[in-house]
Simulated assay, not measured.
Amino acid sequence: MYKNLKEKLWAFITQNNPDLMFTLQEGYSVTTYLEDKIQKVMPMVMDLISESKPGHVIEELALLKMTKELRPSRFNYIKDVVTRDFPVEFNKFREAGVLTYECINMIEACNDIFETFGFSEDKPEDNRLRHAVIARVHDYLSI
């Protein structure tokens, strides 16, 4: 179970939060981060095991809890904005193999906007946020 949780958490991070993935890799702290997250959910896991819950259910609930602060994905949000609103640049970045890198840079450029609008799963989609991000991405691409 522990190994599966570790693999699933890392897979989630690499797909949805590559900015975090690079930060963890640069700091040589991948293992520490993953193990810390898993240790925090182990009491819940043990409770679910004692309740005879199926393994896949336990893993899913544990993954949801471990990734709560990582959702929604700023990376996926930025990538969606670039895909929809800047298709020429999206294709250029994708073909050059730098799409992930550029999206990570755009996340950093938009962090204050995400904070100002309280970007979270608990808030419904906000058109003002989207327009602010589009404007900032436009500025980023114009540099």
Score class of each variant (00 low, 15 high):
residue 45 V to D: 00
residue 139 D to V: 05
residue 141 L to A: 04
residue 46 M to H: 12
residue 90 F to S: 06
residue 128 R to W: 04
residue 19 D to L: 03
residue 115 E to C: 09
residue 138 H to D: 05
residue 123 K to E: 11
residue 112 D to P: 01
residue 115 E to M: 09
residue 30 V to E: 10
residue 122 D to C: 10
residue 4 N to E: 15
residue 32 T to D: 07
residue 89 E to D: 13
residue 42 M to A: 02
residue 15 Q to N: 14
residue 92 K to Y: 06
residue 50 S to A: 15
residue 65 K to W: 09
residue 134 I to P: 00
residue 36 D to Y: 03
residue 137 V to R: 06
residue 129 L to F: 11
residue 51 E to M: 14
residue 33 Y to M: 08
residue 133 V to S: 00
residue 110 C to D: 10
residue 26 E to V: 01
residue 138 H to M: 06
residue 120 S to C: 04
residue 11 A to I: 05
residue 103 C to K: 02
residue 62 A to F: 08
residue 96 A to F: 06
residue 1 M to C: 01
residue 29 S to M: 09
residue 21 M to N: 11
residue 86 F to Q: 00
residue 54 P to R: 15
residue 82 V to Y: 07
residue 95 E to S: 08
residue 70 L to I: 06
residue 104 I to F: 06
residue 133 V to D: 00
residue 58 I to S: 11
residue 90 F to N: 11
residue 69 E to I: 11
residue 107 I to L: 05
residue 103 C to N: 08
residue 67 T to I: 03
residue 117 F to Y: 15
residue 119 F to Y: 15
residue 57 V to S: 12
residue 121 E to K: 12
residue 7 E to M: 10
residue 61 L to S: 11
residue 125 E to I: 14
residue 2 Y to L: 12
residue 8 K to G: 05
residue 115 E to G: 02
residue 49 I to K: 15
residue 33 Y to W: 10
residue 137 V to E: 01
residue 61 L to E: 14
residue 66 M to Y: 11
residue 4 N to P: 03
residue 99 L to H: 04
residue 123 K to D: 05
residue 33 Y to A: 06
residue 140 Y to N: 01
residue 119 F to K: 01
residue 109 A to F: 02
residue 139 D to R: 02
residue 14 T to P: 03
residue 119 F to S: 05
residue 91 N to P: 03
residue 69 E to S: 15
residue 53 K to A: 15
residue 5 L to D: 07
residue 64 L to P: 08
residue 74 R to W: 00
residue 21 M to L: 07
residue 99 L to K: 10
residue 142 S to D: 10
residue 137 V to P: 03
residue 12 F to K: 12
residue 72 P to W: 14
residue 2 Y to M: 07
residue 37 K to Y: 05
residue 84 R to F: 07
residue 97 G to W: 05
residue 36 D to P: 00
residue 50 S to I: 05
residue 11 A to C: 08
residue 100 T to I: 15
residue 126 D to L: 10
residue 32 T to L: 04
residue 47 D to I: 11
residue 115 E to W: 00
